[in-house]
Design a protein around this nucleic acid. Structure first.
Lengths: 235, 235
DNA sequence: GCACTACTACGGTCCCCGCCGAACCATGGC
DNA sequence: GCCATGGTTCGGCGGGGACCGTAGTAGTGC
């Protein structure tokens, strides 16, 4: 089988604190340089370089060389999914020390990207609002966009055909994937729909990224749209 | 956040070869004793005991004491999902030595349980057959049971209402989750539907477990059902 | 050409952790 | 009561790997 040895190898790679920090930093889906990653991990560049090389040959990361810089990113959405699922298990672990609930942490809980979709209080609130309005129906395994939901998406500028193109084999209905939020313990929208929604929010300037991290902020314009059109209850 | 420290802790627990072997052995959803797990991991009982204690306090495993035995099982489906996703990433790793493609491995590829649903060639074949017959529609994110599919499920003895009860908030339609098979690289059915289907196959004697491992075998009766009713192309 | 930056390769140190042997509890059968 | 069995705890050993020095190699700008 994909022997336990290979399984252990991947898990062990993710299990080192320095490497875990780098992987987390890449969870916004963008590409960073080795020096930046060394900084977030708190190690010297040469140590970081070694870690990055190992993760790249293992297929966790991909690199794009560009001039004298080498940008490292997560190799695939599959890796991001893996990290999400580990985070869910880790969230059940009682917090050990809780010494620093810094502002960074607060921002992250409020709104963040989870590789390609929105998470945190914002992600959950948008999801709840769309359920309340009957735009999507969710169960533990999957979600379904209703006919009013399709009209709503078209209304805010998201074309259903474009959405269908993002997905694989299309079915008659537009489906999506629920993703359990590790900080809120409630589901938010993921999958092709979640990715499209997140990209659209960034395009339209409804949310913007904060200082190159995973956290995002809702713009005034976005707040109006989320409250008015989505019917979301936000802070 | 669910700090990178906790993330790394969970991943590191899964990253040790001995612990990974134990976790894999528990992936059939049943509970095993410490001695059995020590055997599959190839370590002494006292070493296994230490590993099991750590994984239990970390929330990866649960124990049920029963007489002088202590049965260890995966703590939750969440843990199983985590392991599935790590396996998917690990499957992309080129096989390192491939020295023993033993019969055990062959049986595992042919048909196995993946915590609570069927996987391997059998799982993929059943999924393909149900798609071909128009019983389910799948995309990358989710799947939908059609009306003929609901009738088919009732026909083979699976009640849709009972299925709905297994899931969380019910939607108008019966949804399911696709799970990418790490050996076949194609999706099979998971989620509540996959779990119900697997349980039903075991109940009806269509498949039976092999020597207490994850591998399962299709019985002659099951072969008839899978070919005749499902229309599956099997071996 | 030279200086500069970003990254990689090598050698050595240190520590964590997985492992086992032996001894120590708990349960069940006689 | 006694032994047998499954399981856990403790102490010491050993190896793997994470880390940082220093040194070396591309690519860029002057």
């Amino acid at each position: 089988m994909a022997s336990t040895g290979q399984f252990a190898e991947i898990a062990a790679l993710a299990g080192d604190p320095a490497r875990a920090a780098m992987l987390h930093a890449l969870m916004d889906g963008r590409a960073l340089t080795a020096t930046e990653l060394a900084h977030v991990a708190g190690v010297t560049p040469q140590t970081a370089s070694g870690h990055l090389a190992r993760m790249t040959t293992a297929g966790l990361l991909g690199v794009e060389k560009q001039g004298r810089h080498r940008y490292h990113r997560l190799a695939s959405p599959t890796v991001a999914r893996m990290m999400e699922s580990i985070m869910q298990v880790a969230a059940d672990l009682e917090p050990p020390k809780r010494l620093s609930v810094g502002p960074n942490d607060t921002a992250l809980r409020a709104a963040r990207t989870c590789y390609d979709h929105l998470a945190g209080q914002l992600g959950v609130a948008l999801c709840d609002a769309m359920i309340d309005q009957g735009f999507v129906e969710l169960d533990n395994d999957a979600g379904l966009v209703t006919d009013p939901g399709l009209r709503f998406l078209a209304d805010i500028g998201l074309d259903a055909d474009a959405l269908a193109a993002r997905r694989g084999k299309r079915s008659g209905r537009l489906l999506c994937r629920p993703c359990l939020d590790w900080s809120e313990r409630r589901p938010h929208l993921a999958g092709g729909l979640g990715a499209a929604l997140c990209a659209h929010c960034l395009d339209q300037g409804w949310v913007r990224r904060l200082h190159g991290a995973r956290a995002v902020a809702v713009t005034p314009k976005g707040l109006g749209v989320f409250r008015g059109r989505f019917g979301a209850r936000l802070g």
